[in-house]
Amino acid sequence: MAHPTALALEFHLVAYKRTWRSSVFSSFALPAMFLVAMGITVGHYIDERSTSIGVPYLDYLGPGLLAATALQVAVGDSTWPVYGGFHWTRVYHVMRASPLTVGDVLRGHLAFVLLRVALSSAGFLVVLLLFGALHSWWALTTPLVAVLVGAACAAPCFAFAARATSDGAFAVLFRVAVVPMTLFAGVFFPVESLPWVARLLAYVSPLWHGVELSRAATLGTATAWGVPAHVAVLAVWCAVGYVLALRSFTRKLGD
């Protein structure tokens, strides 16, 4: 007997058969282009002036982009598609008429998003390997880090998307949360060079903790706060997000 959550996941996998090619491109090729453009070209200028980073800039940037990609994929996949499940395809309502529970519907889709995050980060890891940017066997754990970041970002987005009254809210979410996080949460430069207010925001964001873990894994270095602390912050994001998401889904699907 398959678990009902797995049955809900199965739908998303069947549907994914149609679109996986284009989604692989956008979730994997684009960050790889970033890596080439920023890591090699900009990195060339940075590496010429001896910096405090301690490794070539490409090697520093790579694990950061890996975490940022997890953020992008997670948020993209848990906003429009979730809204669509309620309002466009109505697939959540369809599932709800079967023995699946609201929790199964939510967890099945969430599991699919995390699977997508894991696949794109694994692909990205191969690119980093080809660029010789990996310094430690711990790099093999980066897909796990990416899944943790993905869950920390996706779960609250599920809640947000379930409550959204129009899909216009998601473009705003990218502008006010995803893009600033990508730029200022330690992906491109250490947060220590930020003014203290911005640094505090970075510390609260899930991405910075993911970047710290990912970078420590590929470079074989220590993290700023220690692994348990970063994992704990991400776990809080996951837990709070999941509770909110389950509540929002229950309100939408069960009155």
Binding site: P4, L7, A8, V14, T89, V94, S98, P99
Partner: peptide, 18 residues
């Protein structure tokens, strides 16, 4: 599901019932 086939619409739904 408009993008699945007629048959897939039934088989996918059947899976929800295990």
């Amino acid at each position: 599901d408009l993008e699945l086939t007629v048959l897939e619409n039934l088989t996918v739904y059947a899976r929800y019932f295990n």
